[in-house]
């Protein structure tokens, strides 16, 4: 019967997955009783299959953990920003009152709004969570953590072989080096993968940074729907980062075109 199977691994894997006929199952069981090396191979294979499932689950939980921690950091940043904004808000109200007399706040805003300003107000660098005990850190992650953006970008091709995390870090590195068109390419590839696989891997972060990249390149029509959906979704990890005023500014920028 072994001729039906390319090797012992395939035979044992099919045995573990119960994909053999009853006769073949009995044959393997007899061999296992007699051959301690085969039994050892079977136990190693069982552990290998468990390891793959454990690794898959750990990666899923790690992604949720990273998104949760990033959300926490943003909330804290936002609280601080909120304090600054609240002062700014009252200052703006006073200014607005003065501007109503002189003209209109909107007019001033229209005159002063720029993609660079919106970008600078909303952008903050993404930080990878601190390295975990016992976890593996890839070269790409090490380059990202040590701000070696070009080294990260050197590992991006072929794009089809990159994981979602790598595409995300690649897009962020491209932003850091001013290669905004390339950042868009990487982020859009990530979103396309998520759509195809019905996943949400690094979805929130990508939507936020992709919107900022579009703004940087003056493509407000593409940035606005992303900011709108982030602003509407209270569970979006970057929800607190996008405000109604940002949406208004994008509209004004479109009028200025």
């Amino acid at each position: 019967m072994n001729k039906d199977f390319e090797n012992t691994t395939e035979l044992l894997e099919k045995y573990l997955q119960a994909e053999l006929s009853p006769e073949e199952m009995r044959h393997v069981e007899n061999r296992l009783r007699e051959d301690s090396r085969l039994l050892n191979d079977l136990n190693n294979l069982k552990m290998a299959l468990n390891a793959i499932k454990l690794d898959g689950l750990k990666s899923e939980v790690a992604e949720i953990s990273e998104a949760y921690m990033a959300g926490n950091r943003e909330n804290k940043n936002n609280q601080n920003r909120g304090k600054i904004r609240s002062i700014g808000y009252y200052a703006l109200r006073v200014a607005a009152l003065l501007l109503i007399v002189a003209g209109s706040y909107l007019g001033i805003l229209y005159a002063t709004v720029s993609p660079e300003k919106i970008f600078a107000e909303n952008y903050f660098p993404y930080e990878l969570p601190a390295s975990r005990s016992g976890s593996q850190t890839s070269d790409l992650e090490k380059f990202y953590t040590s701000s070696q953006w070009n080294q990260v970008l050197a590992l991006m091709e072929p794009m089809e072989d990159r994981t979602q995390k790598e595409l995300f870090l690649g897009g962020l590195s491209a932003m850091r080096t001013g290669k905004f068109q390339y950042a868009i390419k990487l982020f859009e590839k990530l979103l396309e993968n998520n759509k195809a696989n019905q996943e949400q891997t690094y979805q929130d972060g990508t939507e936020f940074y992709l919107a900022l990249t579009y703004i940087k390149l003056g493509d407000y029509d593409k940035a606005r729907p992303l900011f709108q959906s982030i602003s509407k979704d209270s569970r979006h990890a970057y929800h607190n980062q996008v405000h109604a005023i940002d949406l208004l500014k994008l509209k004004l920028l479109n009028w200025k075109k």
Partner: peptide, 25 residues
């Protein structure tokens, strides 16, 4: 053991890890 199992998966190449995860996980 769990830590070592994860470390063993980490020592596989990216393409191996991807195929195994897509199929078995």
């Amino acid at each position: 053991i769990r830590k070592q199992l994860l470390a063993a998966v980490g020592r596989l190449g990216e393409s191996c890890r991807k195929i195994l995860a897509l199929f078995y996980y």
